[in-house]
Amino acid sequence: MASSGDELVKYITEKVVVYIEDPRASRARRKAEKEPWAEKWFGMLPLGWSIWRSKWSRNDKK
């Protein structure tokens, strides 16, 4: 049991060190490259729905 705890601490420490050593600009760029969460979890459905809704709302304004 103790060895799994030690492994967990080692893993978390490695992740923290990699994060701290990574330049701030690199982290910001990686964050900007992320795809929107709706497309990640639901695919193209939210995009299609938003396009359909925007066309529908423009037709109502005429």
Rank of each mutant, 00 (worst) to 15 (best):
Y19I: 01
P36I: 01
D60V: 01
Y11V: 04
A25H: 06
D6R: 06
V17G: 01
A38E: 15
K34I: 02
K10I: 01
L45K: 14
A38M: 07
M1R: 09
V17R: 13
M44D: 13
K10N: 12
R24N: 07
R27Q: 15
L47H: 07
L45R: 09
R30K: 15
W37F: 13
E7C: 02
E35T: 09
A32D: 13
K34W: 00
R27N: 04
W49G: 05
E35M: 02
L45V: 10
I20C: 07
W52M: 11
K34Y: 01
R53Y: 13
W37I: 14
T13C: 04
K15I: 03
E39I: 01
V18Y: 02
K31C: 05
R24A: 10
W52F: 15
S26D: 08
D60F: 03
E21D: 15
D60Y: 02
K31W: 04
E39T: 03
P36L: 01
I20F: 06
R27I: 04
F42G: 00
W56G: 03
E39D: 13
D6T: 05
R29S: 06
V16W: 05
W52T: 11
A2S: 10
K62C: 00
S4Q: 07
V9K: 12
E35P: 05
D6I: 07
